[in-house]
Design a binder for these strands. Sequence first.
DNA 1: ATGAAAGCGCTAACAG
DNA 2: CTGTTAGCGCTTTCAT
Lengths: 339, 339
Amino acid sequence: MAKSHKPTIYDVAKAAHVSPTTVSRFLNGQYQSMSSEARDRIATAVARLGYTPNRFARGLRSKRSGMIGLLVVNLSYPFASLLSRGLGQVAYPAGYQVITADFDGSVEKERQYLHMFSRGQVDGLVIQTEGKNRALLEKIAGELPVVLVDRNYGIPHTDSIVINDLEASEEMTRHCLQQGYQRVFYFTEPEEGIPPRALRLQGYIRAMADRQLPQDIMRVRKESPVEVKEALRSTLEVAQKQPTAIYTANGLVMLEVLRARNALKQESLDVPIGLATFDDPDYATALSPPLSAVNVPMEDIGRIAMHMLLRRFEGTQAEEQHIVLRANVVPRESTRTII
Amino acid sequence: MAKSHKPTIYDVAKAAHVSPTTVSRFLNGQYQSMSSEARDRIATAVARLGYTPNRFARGLRSKRSGMIGLLVVNLSYPFASLLSRGLGQVAYPAGYQVITADFDGSVEKERQYLHMFSRGQVDGLVIQTEGKNRALLEKIAGELPVVLVDRNYGIPHTDSIVINDLEASEEMTRHCLQQGYQRVFYFTEPEEGIPPRALRLQGYIRAMADRQLPQDIMRVRKESPVEVKEALRSTLEVAQKQPTAIYTANGLVMLEVLRARNALKQESLDVPIGLATFDDPDYATALSPPLSAVNVPMEDIGRIAMHMLLRRFEGTQAEEQHIVLRANVVPRESTRTII
DNA sequence: ATGAAAGCGCTAACAG
DNA sequence: CTGTTAGCGCTTTCAT
């Protein structure tokens, strides 16, 4: 009980009567290159000393950090936190830690974080990118495995995991129409070249065009309650004349629509209307009536992303992989059949 | 354009015609020990070569990692994601990265992560602990700065940031009573020794005792819809006879109550009732009527936690710090005056 | 104000 | 199967 400093590989080696090299091999699972006795002695020594390897020394030598970078638009959005959770579920048991950063929708911040992560900081990167740092991301993808989630910009050497935005959105629009709504208003944030936004809109457009119905596309910035409120007002005016539903491009826009509806109620403008949203936020089933939604398997995306990285690390995976998960339409009361 | 490997401190030194030592000083901001010319030459060289220090080499020598550990119960709960966001807002600009892990309410997992973080992995730790790994946490707090958030278990050498759970809860209960509800049912998860749960309950009890009103405490596990539903059923029975409100201990319990109410509506059991919740979840203002809530400054907690760590790193702060932030009652329509 | 030298703890050749 | 040796890139005495 003399030594106070943290035990090193040398302490273990001494205690087990082997060389540091053998201990190192042991730590890296190369059991075939040592006698079973040596293995046991080392195991005992490690346990007795409470030894754990120093990650910095390890990283310095081996060039591997045991860390994964996760870069998202906004950590407080359900997509990000569930993604992060799923990622961690696979990463930690595999011996990897996750460094998370949110760039708050700022292209400049995204760039900074990318730089930070690229300098040998992390072994792999999972990113929900804004798509504006294409060149940098492409360069990084040449140095380490990169998985694009949610938004696939087709950047060379990157893997990707997205959902079937277009088809699911089309299906949800169809669902609304089948329920008897003659008008379906689509509320979305401006596309700004962001694939899921464009695709979901596309899905809506397709379904409406298919039935030769008018397309009512309301582009609103969710940060602007006034914008949303005015868009809702004109929607409700229509709804007074014919059965109408509102279908929002994601759960955050739906929140704003619901808030705007509350505001309009204050002005005694209240018209029954169908509601549906992409995403299946936690509040969907708490609302009355419960909200029809497109369920996106966010945790799965995280888990799969990590599995993809692990395969890259093993070298098992050579070609780019592009996975499209299925998002499911979950019909609920908010679009119940009318007439 | 010859060298392909990442530039090291030696490359910079050579380019700036100084020794690696001076470059190191430069990198660590010790400008007073070099001529301004040397400083300029180094700055130029760093920029030109695109040099960034290797964190492993640095960590190996200096024993500091530049990383903060964040350990939470569940990363997908709003508390955690907002906390994480707040932490990052201060950490990154200060040159620290955040490693986040969620232990999913498992004491064993919490222990494992604590071990992982304690072995010189991180420079500081922010944790929402279950309080069951007291000894280990105390040991870790002896080795590095630890900030307890949300739940203060009074572990020696740890700082803490919590909110005024008791007072805020008492205030919210009072608010309900003032609005004319004769019964206020308090829905909470079993306390299990978790401070905020116990304190919020306490606040409710105080307010009720003060007015000599019956205490209706419904302990439910939010994972059990059946339990919540039955608790709600008996609550609604009372509500049929006298003006009643439900006040939930947090936003997740409220979600379950709302779901249960939907389920009971299916059974045609629907009684008007007041609603209030601790936490101010995003859906509060989306519901109709909007939900009265106790607003908890979660991002602030994260930001302050990081500031506390930074002060510890500087050595500016010696004594334990225990901060209590104020949570505010936000009255909304869901508890509008009745008679 | 500056530099030389000595490692931090580990792993990866290269021997045996 | 095992050990010796030489660094990885940086910071930190200790000189000057």
